[in-house]
């Protein structure tokens, strides 16, 4: 479980799967609120499937779910960001444990290799200042931030209608 492995961004004959989850039961009235996205590439497929889900009960918002097929170059950029973060060398053994109120997960599968990271939500960098494993938590924090921006860009460019266009 804690053994590390590397991902070959060019290899397309192995299954690749990445999932990020952040959420929890923070409030009795609001219930379960979370953000989750995952990207999956089946062996030899010429595309990957990106899924995005966001549940917030603020003002009775419904669950937002999006699914879109992305090209291999997008997948390669995804893998590139994951590899360069060096999260694959880390382990969550000494990270703060998840609670019912706050949970974050990163799951990475590549062929038969698999890694799962779990910790409570990192609100800010200063909140992990006193943690024993603050350097590896920082890697987790920045990776989550960078992938979230990538996914937000993809989802908004594909689905969002611009209110008006400047000519």
């Amino acid at each position: 479980m804690s053994n590390s492995f590397d991902i070959d961004p060019i290899e397309r004959n192995k299954e690749f799967y990445f999932r990020f989850y952040s959420g929890g039961f923070r409030d009795i009235e609001l219930g379960h609120e979370f953000l989750e996205f995952d990207i999956r590439h089946e062996p030899r497929e010429e595309f990957a499937i990106l899924r995005y889900a966001n549940q917030t009960n603020y003002r009775n918002e419904d669950l937002i779910k999006k699914e879109v097929k992305v090209s291999i170059l997008v997948l390669q950029e995804f893998i590139d960001i994951i590899r360069k973060s060096q999260i694959l060398l880390e382990s969550d053994r000494n990270w703060p444990k998840v609670t019912r109120e706050s949970k974050q997960e990163i799951e990475i599968r590549y062929g038969k290799n698999k890694k799962l990271f779990k910790t409570k939500t990192i609100v800010s960098l200063s909140s992990i200042r006193n943690e024993e494993e603050k350097e590896s938590l920082k890697i987790f924090y920045y990776l989550a931030q960078d992938l979230k921006t990538l996914v937000y860009s993809l989802i908004s460019l594909h689905f969002k209608i611009k209110p008006f266009r400047l000519q």
Partner: peptide
């Protein structure tokens, strides 16, 4: 088509290209 020969999907406002 993409480089891997997958048919391209048009997004809501046009075609989205990724540059790496």
């Amino acid at each position: 088509y993409t480089r891997e020969h997958a048919p391209v999907s048009k997004s809501v406002e046009g075609y989205i290209l990724i540059i790496t």
